[in-house]
Amino acid sequence: MLEARLQTGALLKKVLEAIKELITDANFDCSDNGIALQAMDNSHVALVALLLRHDGFEPYRCDRSLALGVNLVSLSKVLRCAGNDDIITLKADDTADVLSLTFENTDNDRISEYELKLMDIDSEHLGIPDTTYEAVVQMSSAEFARICKDLQVLSDSVQIDVTKEGVKFGAKGELGSGAVTLKQNGNVDKEEEATLIELQQNVSLNFSLKYLVNFTKATPLASRVSLSMSSEVPLLVEYKMEAGYIRYYLAPKIGE
């Protein structure tokens, strides 16, 4: 059985907001390592990989591996019934036909209990090869969200060029073109806002902005984001949390 108590329930609410528009149904794979999820969007262009490590919960107990098949829209609706400061406890027994959720307020004088019906989900688990990326950009997650949203005004795709000087996001469309360049600036006073680049080789890649904008729904989870790129392989966008991560992979657009 699974029992996982999350002191900051808001984290789970934010995680659901970050994935529910990309994927509809997914298995939460529970093991002694923690709770993991891997799922592709319907068009097989993007993939979400989530890990909530066991040490982010207190207590965390999972004596046998369980796959909890969840409709994410339903789960996010139930999670909206939890207060932002509530402690959330997830429970499931080995039959895994319902997920029990308990929300306790901080004064511990209001306890709400919900049960969500689970489903059998046949999910394709993808093997993601270990990749040494040619370029890794670490930057402010809020800045990345702003750039994606701004450039979406011009086009449905963005060209990302990384050199040792900086990273340039460019878009061209019917109404014109636009570009935002962030220079590498490791010395800025505010560490959170620094743009840092690790580069083996310059890269220039094109991606759908619709998906990138969708990924930025994870912005409330982390102040930093990393973009890992190599020529003609999927982009990895990672938001690191205190005890886990949310990773998005996006297949590139390639010239015909």
């Binding site: 592709m40 993808l126 093997g127």
Partner: peptide
């Protein structure tokens, strides 16, 4: 014109 690739051409079903 750019063509959107599928993830399945990069990642194998495990």
């Amino acid at each position: 014109p750019m063509m959107q690739k599928s993830l399945l051409s990069f990642f194998k079903t495990a």
